[in-house]
């Protein structure tokens, strides 16, 4: 039990997918403009990340490895992610239109979010068990959400700051992300993956 909590904790804080691996930077920079929207994107990423990594673990373990086809991981994982997002959209549109409406365009956008694919590939690299994969993918999603919400909050305060004009909106955000990554290093002694 303890190892799952350790993985969960590490993936949220010390091995944060956004701030340690700098994955999923595109939405991280564009969508963090507004904190409410950032939270929406964070929730969507967490759901999809957990679902896809779990499904990919099952496919990898029970189909690809026994058939000796682990070199197809990349392709199969990408197709699985696209499928899961598509199916999720159909189901939500039918049964929870309110939730579907709240997610809006974020769900289809997630298909091409590299953090999602990254988590699926990393769980293979680290040879996680099923339980560990669930903990890791859920934690990574939460970590990404924590990072983007924090960034949203910081950017809100940028209104009062006057950064160099040449930095632009994306430039100063990248610098902020670097500073946040430095701060997150402070957690690194506590747990690691």
């Amino acid at each position: 039990m303890q190892q799952y909590f350790l993985i969960l904790f590490a993936s949220i804080l010390t091995s944060n997918i956004a701030l340690t691996y700098f994955l999923g930077m595109c939405p991280f920079i564009t969508i963090s403009r507004n904190i409410g929207v950032a939270a929406g994107m964070g929730i969507a990423v967490t759901c999809v990340m957990t679902l896809t990594a779990t499904a990919n673990w099952l496919i990898n373990e029970y189909l690809l490895i026994p058939m000796g086809l682990h070199f197809l991981q990349f392709l199969v994982f990408i197709v699985m992610i696209a499928t899961i997002v598509q199916v999720l959209e159909l189901v939500m549109d039918r049964y929870t239109p309110g939730l579907h409406h709240a997610f809006g365009i974020f769900l289809p956008l997630i298909t091409v979010n590299c953090a999602i694919l990254g988590v699926s590939l990393l769980m293979v690299l680290r040879s996680f068990s099923f339980g560990q994969t669930v903990a890791y993918s859920f934690g990574s999603g939460m970590g990404w959400m924590l990072a983007i919400i924090t960034m949203g909050a910081l950017r809100k305060r940028l209104i009062f700051a006057q950064p160099l004009r040449n930095f632009g909106a994306a430039g100063i955000t990248a610098i902020l992300a670097g500073l946040m990554a430095l701060a997150f290093i402070g957690f690194s002694g506590m747990a690691s993956l």
Partner: peptide
């Protein structure tokens, strides 16, 4: 051949 069959079946 295995890989081809798998990918086709999967798709």
């Amino acid at each position: 051949l295995n890989a081809l069959l798998f990918m086709n079946g999967f798709a």
